[in-house]
Design a protein around this nucleic acid. Structure first.
Ligand code: SF4
Ligand code: SF4
Lengths: 157, 157
DNA sequence: TTATCACAGACCAAAATGATCTGCGATAAT
DNA sequence: ATTATCGCAGATCATTTTGGTCTGTGATAA
């Protein structure tokens, strides 16, 4: 439930690597895929989407590859999510124009859920790929909510 | 991406209804399903899970149904999520015991992602089904992050 | 006794996701 | 000019997840 897709994981790994290798370091798909044991073809597709979204710059040539197009601080996790998987939404209803949800007319929980969604999106926007490679102490703009829980929360998958 | 499942939606709708009908108002599956146009069989299953999780009380008899087992303020969205769909996790890797993720050993983004996850879980825990039926102004404990975005964010479903 | 409710699990269909395969186009090195 | 190396694009397939259906059992108040 609420799990990030594998493609997003791949994207974050790749971007984090590129962020560490400097602003204009060039990495190619094969190398990244090999390093992280990612199927090259699928990573290639992911990178293409990141490129289309304007997050990275492609260099289509031998010894080419990809480099960051904007600073690592400017690339939020939300932007990566949106680039790779499309618009992010907690609630499965659409906006006012088309209402495919069978419960839409009777629904009385939409407003608070959208509010919750905005909060989550805010967090996703606040976390940049620059901060992915840094230690917890360096994180800024995101409050640590782990104290609410007795111990680190884990998950299956 | 990051969408709640339909079953969770059903659960939230039902719980919100029950919360509004008072602490010991009894609602049965057929009525709720009819009101919200939910397939009765699937709602039945959802309610059973909520019952097993101790969130609601079943009354197995004619004129029976379900009633809240604990106060509406005590039932967080996170508890509903967990009851209906199992453990919630942003990252798809598991804890240290079993590592099915092929990238686990090389992964250097786990820690910040788990932190992000905890933040999201905190929000889900902070929102109770009591607040689902209330207007935005009444919401407490959850900051409104919508100001970050120019206009309400929508999504496809 | 019986109608009404919850309980349980098998079962199936559709959609989302992960992954593979094939061919094309750009370009720098030779 | 040729060629090897890279990205670009799409169709296609397998697996998993999800949503939904079907059938039958058990509890209990009227
Ligand atoms: S039930 Fe309400 S919140 Fe959920 S998808 Fe439908 S309209 Fe949106
Ligand atoms: S890539 Fe890292 S964060 Fe993602 S699932 Fe694997 S171990 Fe977890």
């Amino acid at each position: 439930m609420l799990k990030l897709t594998k493609k997003v994981d791949y994207a974050l790994l790749a971007l984090n690597l590129m962020a560490k290798s400097g602003e204009d370091g060039i990495s190619n798909v094969r190398d990244i895929a090999s390093l992280y044991s990612i199927p090259p073809e699928i990573l290639a597709k992911v990178m293409q989407k990141l490129s289309k979204a304007g997050l990275i710059q492609s260099h289509n040539a031998p010894k080419g590859g990809y480099s960051l197009k904007v600073q690592a601080e400017e690339i939020s996790v939300l932007k990566v999510l949106t680039a790779v998987e499309g618009p992010v939404g907690i609630v499965s209803c659409s906006d006012g124009t088309d209402r495919t949800c069978q419960q839409h007319d009777q629904c009385d929980i939409r407003s608070p859920l959208e509010r919750l969604q905005n909060n989550i999106l805010w967090f996703l926007e606040a976390l940049s790929i620059r901060e992915l490679g840094q230690e917890p102490a360096v994180l800024k703009g995101v409050t640590d909510g782990s104290s609410v829980f007795g111990q680190p929360l884990h998950h299956k998958g």
